[in-house]
């Protein structure tokens, strides 16, 4: 990027068009979705003029607002539990080497690689076997499971980058374990915790597959609601609602990024 030479790859013909094509493929649909969410015409393919009516309609739709409320309840609960669990896990893992550490580390990240549909079916099966009635609680439990590794990883990374002599210095300066944690470890860990929490939050907010399986009646979240709307057809309300969710996601990712960067 810097200087006259730049990336040597630019020498090859076709690198630029390929990159352009890739990004177009990735983002053009999203741009179109956002543009169409302002289209005054109900038919998607015909542009008649600019309007914000669909947004008004979305924000005054009781079902959508209920789904949004559910989404937020689930996201906040799952994020909270996952972040606390992730922080404790990271602190525990950083305490020292132990037998089977690699295995524990692997198991911790497993939810990231297990196909979501498998987790979804397994979770549903588990709830049925145990006899828990499907509802908002089961969604929260399900989300907590896959949010935990997302919360854990940034916290662990932050902790790993922390100079172990800082804790020793605190202890040397008359701070017992709890005060050393509160005054030194926690403030330094805070950006990691926050960015882990934000990551967990958007992952939860976006989730469809697991939610679709384990959400009982009245526990519909926004992604599930959008899926229901799509079955009837892609309406401008869907576009508007999707755009709003995109906005929230971008907001949270940016926040997470900013928090991660600051020391």
């Amino acid at each position: 990027m810097s200087g006259r030479g730049g990336n040597p790859l630019w020498r090859f013909a076709g690198v630029r068009p390929a990159a352009a094509l890739f990004f177009a493929y990735l983002y053009l649909p999203i741009v179109i979705l956002i543009v169409l969410s302002f289209n005054a015409n109900r038919t998607v393919t015909i542009w008649t003029g600019l309007t914000t009516d669909w947004y008004v309609e979305v924000l005054s739709n009781g079902d959508i607002l209920r789904a949004a409320r559910n989404s937020l309840i689930v996201a906040f609960s799952a994020t909270f539990i996952a972040t606390v669990a992730g922080t404790l896990a990271a602190l525990g893992m950083a305490r020292g080497r132990f037998r089977g550490e690699a295995a524990v580390n692997g198991v911790m990240g497993l939810p990231l690689v297990v196909p979501e549909i498998v987790t979804a079916v397994a979770t549903l099966l588990f709830f049925i076997l145990v006899g828990i009635k499907l509802g908002l609680l089961t969604v929260i439990i399900g989300h907590t499971v896959f949010c935990t590794p997302f919360a854990y990883l940034p916290i662990r990374a932050r902790l790993e980058g922390m100079d172990p002599s800082l804790r020793e210095a605190a202890s040397d300066l008359y701070a017992d374990a709890w005060r050393a944690f509160r005054r030194v470890t926690l403030p330094l860990l805070w950006p990691g915790i926050l960015s882990g929490a934000l990551l967990a939050f958007i992952i939860s907010l976006d989730d469809f597959v697991i939610t679709y399986f384990v959400a009982g009646a009245g526990a519909t979240t926004l992604p599930v609601y959008i899926f229901g709307m799509i079955r009837i057809g892609v309406t401008p309300e869907v576009n508007a609602l999707s755009s709003l969710m995109l906005l929230v996601s971008i907001l949270f990712v940016s926040l997470s990024f900013l928090v991660q960067r600051q020391r």
Binding site: S165, E168, A169, A170, S171, D172, Y174, A175, D176, V184
Partner: peptide
């Protein structure tokens, strides 16, 4: 434990608390 010993350490890499001011560091103990 270290926090009950009337001795203090100057660490090889200083181990200053990066989130505190100089005064905050000195006042910590």
């Amino acid at each position: 434990p270290p926090f009950r010993r009337p001795v203090n350490t100057v660490f090889q890499n200083y181990a200053l608390f990066p989130h505190m001011t100089v005064a905050g560091n000195v006042a910590f103990g």
